[in-house]
Simulated assay, not measured.
Amino acid sequence: MPDTDEVRSLYLQLLRAWNGRDAGGMAECFASDGIMIGFDGSVAEGREAIRDHLSPIFADHPTAAFVAIIRAIRMGEGVGILLADVGMVPPGATRINPAANARQSMVARADGGRWRIELFQATPAALHWDERGREALSAELDAAFGERGPLPDR
């Protein structure tokens, strides 16, 4: 499998764990000292801290499911960078919540034959001065959700 497929698969594994409300599964996607920067700016460093950060979120809140569109994967020597746009579909809803749209970036590194996340960051895609862009992104994410559900097959 080419490295771009490995990086893509790792990203989708991360999002499937979120959608499955699996804090341990998400944490396992990260390098032992990996960093996760959340939509709200929260930072968790290391697998254990990531799991501990996510566990109460999943236990106490009905989290929305990610809908993702992977925009780019760039590869370097043993390193991959993935960029994606995401929306979130609240529980029981049939459309994304445009206020939760985000741009996600992931830096992954090959570690002993397995790819792990070194850095994952979600940034709100508020697009304050680009109403057309904001509406177009929401429409594209809604269409992706309607066509295939939350995540691509691979």
Rank of each mutant, 00 (worst) to 15 (best):
residue 18 W to Y: 10
residue 23 A to C: 08
residue 17 A to C: 14
residue 39 F to Y: 13
residue 43 V to L: 00
residue 18 W to V: 15
residue 34 G to L: 09
residue 33 D to A: 07
residue 24 G to P: 07
residue 29 C to W: 14
residue 31 A to M: 11
residue 19 N to P: 07
residue 38 G to E: 06
residue 41 G to S: 01
residue 23 A to L: 01
residue 43 V to T: 11
residue 30 F to A: 02
residue 37 I to A: 12
residue 19 N to W: 10
residue 20 G to W: 06
residue 47 R to A: 13
residue 28 E to Y: 03
residue 41 G to T: 10
residue 28 E to F: 09
residue 39 F to E: 01
residue 47 R to Q: 11
residue 24 G to A: 07
residue 39 F to N: 04
residue 35 I to M: 14
residue 34 G to D: 10
residue 23 A to W: 02
residue 43 V to K: 09
residue 31 A to S: 13
residue 30 F to H: 14
residue 45 E to K: 08
residue 33 D to W: 12
residue 20 G to P: 04
residue 43 V to C: 04
residue 25 G to S: 01
residue 22 D to K: 00
residue 47 R to W: 11
residue 32 S to H: 11
residue 33 D to R: 09
residue 42 S to L: 07
residue 17 A to R: 11
residue 48 E to H: 08
residue 41 G to P: 12
residue 29 C to M: 08
residue 30 F to I: 07
residue 24 G to V: 02
residue 37 I to Q: 07
residue 25 G to Q: 03
residue 34 G to A: 15
residue 27 A to P: 03
residue 14 L to W: 15
residue 30 F to D: 07
residue 23 A to G: 10
residue 14 L to V: 11
residue 37 I to D: 04
residue 46 G to H: 13
residue 43 V to H: 04
residue 38 G to N: 14
residue 21 R to P: 09
residue 18 W to N: 00
residue 17 A to L: 12
residue 40 D to N: 15
residue 44 A to Q: 08
residue 22 D to P: 00
residue 18 W to P: 00
residue 18 W to R: 04
residue 47 R to I: 03
residue 48 E to Q: 09
residue 48 E to K: 13
residue 27 A to N: 10
residue 36 M to E: 08
residue 29 C to L: 14
residue 16 R to K: 04
residue 21 R to L: 13
residue 18 W to Q: 01
residue 36 M to L: 15
residue 34 G to F: 12
residue 48 E to T: 08
residue 39 F to I: 02
residue 42 S to H: 12
residue 32 S to E: 10
residue 25 G to C: 13
residue 16 R to G: 14
residue 15 L to D: 02
residue 43 V to D: 01
residue 46 G to L: 06
residue 25 G to R: 03
residue 38 G to A: 15
residue 46 G to I: 07
residue 37 I to E: 01
residue 28 E to G: 13
residue 33 D to M: 00
residue 15 L to V: 10
residue 15 L to W: 11
residue 30 F to Q: 05
residue 41 G to D: 03
residue 32 S to V: 14
residue 18 W to E: 08
residue 20 G to E: 12
residue 25 G to K: 01
residue 17 A to P: 05
residue 39 F to V: 00
residue 43 V to S: 03
residue 40 D to T: 14
residue 22 D to Y: 00
residue 21 R to Y: 06
residue 36 M to K: 06
residue 39 F to S: 05
residue 37 I to M: 10
residue 19 N to S: 03
residue 24 G to T: 10
residue 21 R to Q: 09
residue 22 D to H: 12
residue 15 L to A: 05
